[in-house]
Simulated assay, not measured.
Amino acid sequence: GNAATMARGARFFLMALAGIVAMHAARAQVEDEVEEDAAVFEEEDPIDEEAAASVFIAANKAIEFGDVPLLVVGKEFTVTYELFNLGNAPAYGVELMDSWDDASFELVKGEATAAFDRIEGDGSAKHTVVLRPLKEGVFDCTRANITYTTVPEDQADEDAAEYREALTSTDGLVQVVTAAEYRRRTGSTTNEWLVVAALSALVVVGPM
């Protein structure tokens, strides 16, 4: 009887010991899985932030006209390019490429191309050129082309989708006239305003 009781006690003890060992093993496995999940989350977190980042370049190309939207043969004018990063992440390797007909316009100052290492999110960049019309006529002011990447140049893959393109706005068709024609057009306008001013003065002052 005593031997059987001792045998049952030993069996229960071994079963309890096995249960305790199994419980500790399960707890250790759960802790390892939690640590592994935390490590994976920490690794994926920057990727999520990168996925949430956005880069979008919008650009404006504008001719600085005088009092009237005309260009004059031989008279210099300025073209201003403004690039805006409407995203929240930097744009890298930004390049501006424009072209002007050499037979119609002389590049006086600056270049028709420009490069910027980076434009910060919600940032901007500006480039200007000065040109001189060589002959009269109507010319199409074409859009300038812009290329950029969403990652630094040394990390960019030519086959990847990080490379993007954009176009500037445009003034459309631009008319170039001779100096005599410009004076004729603006002179008639000036004379009209002088007549209006004189008549207004007569109305205000009136007969004495």
Score class of each variant (00 low, 15 high):
residue 82 E to K: 12
residue 140 D to H: 10
residue 199 L to M: 14
residue 40 V to P: 00
residue 108 V to K: 06
residue 154 D to I: 08
residue 103 A to S: 12
residue 175 Q to Y: 01
residue 94 V to H: 00
residue 75 K to F: 12
residue 100 W to Q: 05
residue 166 A to E: 03
residue 105 F to Q: 00
residue 23 M to L: 15
residue 108 V to P: 01
residue 15 M to C: 03
residue 36 E to N: 07
residue 56 F to M: 11
residue 121 G to T: 04
residue 127 H to K: 07
residue 11 R to D: 13
residue 181 E to D: 08
residue 145 N to K: 14
residue 78 T to R: 14
residue 69 P to V: 05
residue 11 R to G: 02
residue 89 A to Q: 08
residue 171 D to L: 01
residue 29 Q to N: 11
residue 24 H to Y: 09
residue 67 D to I: 14
residue 123 G to D: 14
residue 134 L to V: 05
residue 57 I to V: 12
residue 193 W to D: 11
residue 118 R to L: 13
residue 78 T to W: 15
residue 185 R to N: 11
residue 136 E to C: 11
residue 102 D to Y: 13
residue 14 L to R: 03
residue 74 G to D: 04
residue 163 Y to A: 02
residue 80 T to V: 15
residue 174 V to D: 12
residue 47 I to K: 11
residue 33 E to F: 07
residue 47 I to F: 12
residue 204 V to K: 00
residue 90 P to I: 12
residue 139 F to V: 00
residue 14 L to S: 10
residue 87 G to Y: 08
residue 4 A to H: 06
residue 111 E to V: 05
residue 176 V to F: 09
residue 98 D to R: 10
residue 191 N to I: 15
residue 39 A to E: 12
residue 9 G to V: 10
residue 130 V to T: 15
residue 165 E to R: 09
residue 22 A to Y: 06
residue 30 V to H: 11
residue 38 A to G: 02
residue 142 T to H: 05
residue 131 L to V: 00
residue 71 L to T: 01
residue 29 Q to G: 12
residue 113 T to I: 04
residue 45 D to I: 03
residue 199 L to A: 15
residue 197 A to R: 13
residue 184 R to W: 12
residue 46 P to V: 08
residue 136 E to P: 09
residue 128 T to A: 11
residue 69 P to E: 05
residue 152 P to C: 10
residue 166 A to W: 06
residue 202 L to A: 01
residue 20 I to L: 09
residue 85 N to R: 04
residue 7 A to D: 08
residue 138 V to Q: 09
residue 129 V to P: 01
residue 106 E to G: 05
residue 172 G to F: 13
residue 74 G to V: 05
residue 101 D to Q: 06
residue 111 E to C: 02
residue 13 F to N: 03
residue 86 L to A: 14
residue 140 D to G: 03
residue 208 M to F: 11
residue 93 G to I: 01
residue 162 E to M: 08
residue 97 M to N: 13
residue 116 F to N: 05
residue 75 K to I: 10
residue 27 R to F: 08
